Simulated assay, not measured.
Amino acid sequence: MKKLLPVIVAVVFVCYIVFSILLVNEKGMDAVCRGVTVEIKDSADRNFITRRDVIRLLRSSNLYPVDTPLRAINTAHIERRIIESGPVERTKVYKTPSGMVHIEITQKTPILRVFADGESYYVDEQGHAMAVSSRYAAYLPVACGKIEKTFATTDLYKFAVFLHKHDFWNNQIEQIFVYPNKEIELIPRVGDFRIFLGSLDGFEEKMDHLQLFYEQAIPKVGWDKYEMINLKYKNQIVCTKK
């Protein structure tokens, strides 16, 4: 009996601890939400959505959790609604032991601004169209002309990704003009000339040739000698003088 006593005491103690934890959790889940905290992780880089926008969105969607029992708050529904709002790439919503609902948000990253058919929108780095914001304008290459949204989010998106990944071209190309036959003309930030790319087929090779031209020819002839640099034809650069 003496040998069993320590075992019995240990079992009773463990049961007490487990019961206490369950009781505390049960009481915690019966508590109501005391408030909402919103953390926008990349707010220093862009400002497509604010805490006020998030709170307004939750209120209008009947998902505002304050004064709601914690057990009744569906964080997955809140996450889904925030993602549906447009400018949010991903979000994480969770309840804290102190009775708060915490929302973490990462915004989408636009890589191209499009003006076409009377509307304006961004294309993000995942190839999705996203609405512009009245409070924030991203400094990006601008595409205009005859642009269907499917073209903007496929072929033109691939070209925008190329520019975005190459700092030189992302800073150098100011405007992309799309002709009805989907041929492309580029307007650089530096230099009084236009760059006719032709179709987007093989654009990486064309841009490599253009970079060589920038590095080897421009220093010799200057930025103002040519009116047009034509890259349409394979392995050729045809320049038109002013």
Results as ranks from 00 to 15, higher is better:
residue 25 N to D: 09
residue 141 P to G: 04
residue 114 V to C: 05
residue 113 R to V: 04
residue 80 R to Y: 06
residue 144 C to N: 13
residue 123 V to H: 00
residue 134 S to V: 05
residue 117 D to H: 12
residue 67 D to L: 10
residue 26 E to P: 02
residue 49 I to A: 02
residue 153 T to P: 00
residue 24 V to E: 13
residue 107 Q to S: 01
residue 148 E to K: 06
residue 131 A to L: 06
residue 95 K to L: 10
residue 28 G to E: 15
residue 110 P to K: 01
residue 142 V to A: 09
residue 152 A to R: 03
residue 139 Y to H: 13
residue 88 V to M: 01
residue 56 R to V: 11
residue 106 T to E: 07
residue 130 M to D: 03
residue 157 Y to Q: 00
residue 108 K to G: 00
residue 89 E to Y: 08
residue 51 R to Y: 08
residue 146 K to I: 13
residue 141 P to V: 03
residue 83 I to L: 02
residue 123 V to D: 00
residue 46 R to N: 08
residue 107 Q to N: 08
residue 47 N to G: 10
residue 42 D to K: 01
residue 129 A to N: 12
residue 43 S to G: 14
residue 77 H to I: 11
residue 134 S to E: 15
residue 24 V to D: 13
residue 87 P to Y: 01
residue 97 P to N: 11
residue 114 V to Y: 04
residue 40 I to L: 06
residue 133 S to D: 00
residue 117 D to K: 14
residue 83 I to H: 00
residue 133 S to H: 00
residue 91 T to E: 08
residue 98 S to A: 11
residue 28 G to C: 14
residue 113 R to P: 03
residue 92 K to C: 12
residue 74 N to I: 09
residue 69 P to G: 10
residue 45 D to E: 14
residue 59 R to S: 05
residue 103 I to Y: 03
residue 64 Y to C: 06
residue 46 R to A: 02
residue 126 Q to P: 07
residue 30 D to R: 08
residue 111 I to K: 02
residue 149 K to Y: 10
residue 33 C to I: 11
residue 76 A to M: 14
residue 30 D to H: 06
residue 58 L to V: 03
residue 148 E to Q: 15
residue 127 G to N: 05
residue 147 I to P: 04
residue 147 I to S: 01
residue 43 S to R: 13
residue 54 V to Y: 02
residue 105 I to Y: 03
residue 54 V to R: 01
residue 78 I to W: 03
residue 132 V to K: 07
residue 41 K to N: 09
residue 34 R to G: 10
residue 139 Y to E: 11
residue 89 E to Q: 11
residue 140 L to F: 05
residue 50 T to R: 02
residue 158 K to I: 04
residue 153 T to H: 00
residue 65 P to D: 14
residue 114 V to M: 11
residue 37 T to Y: 10
residue 129 A to C: 06
residue 83 I to G: 00
residue 79 E to Q: 10
residue 28 G to T: 12
residue 68 T to H: 04
residue 53 D to E: 08
residue 48 F to I: 05
residue 27 K to D: 09
residue 53 D to L: 13
residue 58 L to P: 00
residue 76 A to S: 13
residue 126 Q to S: 13
residue 155 D to S: 10
residue 37 T to L: 15
residue 49 I to P: 02
residue 139 Y to K: 12
residue 58 L to T: 02
residue 79 E to D: 02
residue 48 F to D: 01
residue 155 D to Y: 15
residue 75 T to C: 08
residue 69 P to S: 07
residue 71 R to D: 06
residue 86 G to N: 07
residue 28 G to L: 14
residue 44 A to D: 12
residue 37 T to S: 13
residue 61 S to M: 04
residue 68 T to S: 04
residue 41 K to F: 08
residue 131 A to G: 02
residue 75 T to K: 05
residue 114 V to E: 10
residue 110 P to S: 10
residue 66 V to Q: 05
residue 144 C to D: 13
residue 25 N to I: 12
residue 27 K to G: 07
residue 61 S to F: 04
residue 148 E to T: 14
residue 90 R to N: 07
residue 143 A to K: 02
residue 45 D to F: 14
residue 124 D to S: 03
residue 115 F to M: 15
residue 150 T to L: 13
residue 155 D to G: 07
residue 136 Y to L: 08
residue 149 K to H: 12
residue 103 I to M: 05
residue 88 V to Q: 03
residue 71 R to T: 05
residue 125 E to N: 15
residue 126 Q to L: 12
residue 59 R to L: 12
residue 104 E to I: 05
residue 75 T to Q: 08
residue 31 A to G: 09
residue 29 M to T: 12
residue 138 A to R: 01
residue 142 V to L: 09
residue 56 R to K: 14
residue 95 K to T: 04
residue 100 M to Q: 14
residue 77 H to R: 11
residue 74 N to G: 08
residue 146 K to F: 11
